[in-house]
Simulated scan of single mutants.
Amino acid sequence: MEQATPGAAVTLKDVAAASGVSISTASRALDERITSRSAAAAHVRKVAEELGYRRNSFASNLRRGETRTLGVLVPRLSDTVMALMFEAVERAAAARGYFAMVATSGDDPEDERRAAETLLDRNVDGLILATARLGDELPKLLRHRKVAHALVLRTDGESPSAVGDDEVGGYLAVRHLVDLGHRDIAVITGPDFTSTGTARLAGARRALEEAGIAVRDQWMVAAGYGIENGYTAGQTLLAAGHGNRPTAVFAANDNIAMGVMAAAQHNGIAIPTDLALVGYNDTPLSARLPTPLSSVSVPLDQIATTAIELIVNPGTEPRIRRATPTLIPRQSSGVPVRHARAAQP
Rank of each mutant, 00 (worst) to 15 (best):
L119R: 00
H144C: 11
D254E: 05
T305W: 06
M85P: 04
F99S: 15
M101R: 07
I256C: 04
T198F: 07
E210K: 11
N281R: 01
G71N: 03
Y171P: 01
L77K: 11
P318L: 07
A239D: 14
S38M: 09
A263N: 02
G203C: 02
T69K: 04
D125Q: 03
M258Y: 09
V335G: 09
I23L: 12
A252H: 05
G315H: 09
V152Q: 00
A92K: 00
V174W: 04
P109K: 09
V21W: 06
E49G: 15
S36D: 15
H149I: 04
P299I: 04
P345C: 08
E158W: 07
A83N: 10
G97R: 07
A40Y: 00
H339I: 13
D274L: 01
E2A: 13
T291R: 09
L177Q: 05
A223G: 05
T291A: 03
S295A: 09
R68M: 14
T67N: 06
A162L: 01
D136Q: 05
A270N: 12
H242E: 15
A4N: 15
L120D: 01
G106T: 08
M82W: 10
L62T: 11
H144D: 15
P272D: 03
A9V: 13
A100Y: 02
D217V: 12
A92P: 02
R145E: 13
L12H: 03
V178M: 06
V47N: 05
A9R: 15
D79Q: 14
G334K: 00
Y280T: 04
L77C: 11
I271Y: 02
V89P: 00
D31T: 10
L180C: 11
E209T: 15
G65N: 10
E228A: 13
V168R: 08
A116H: 00
I23E: 11
D136M: 05
E117M: 10
D274Y: 01
R154L: 02
P191F: 03
D274T: 07
H144A: 15
I320H: 06
E2K: 14
A342G: 10
T118E: 10
A252T: 08
A40D: 12
G170Y: 00
A252G: 14
R143E: 14
V168S: 07
R33E: 14
L127N: 00
A40T: 15
N267C: 11
A29T: 06
R321Y: 08
T283E: 13
T306N: 04
S161G: 05
A92G: 09
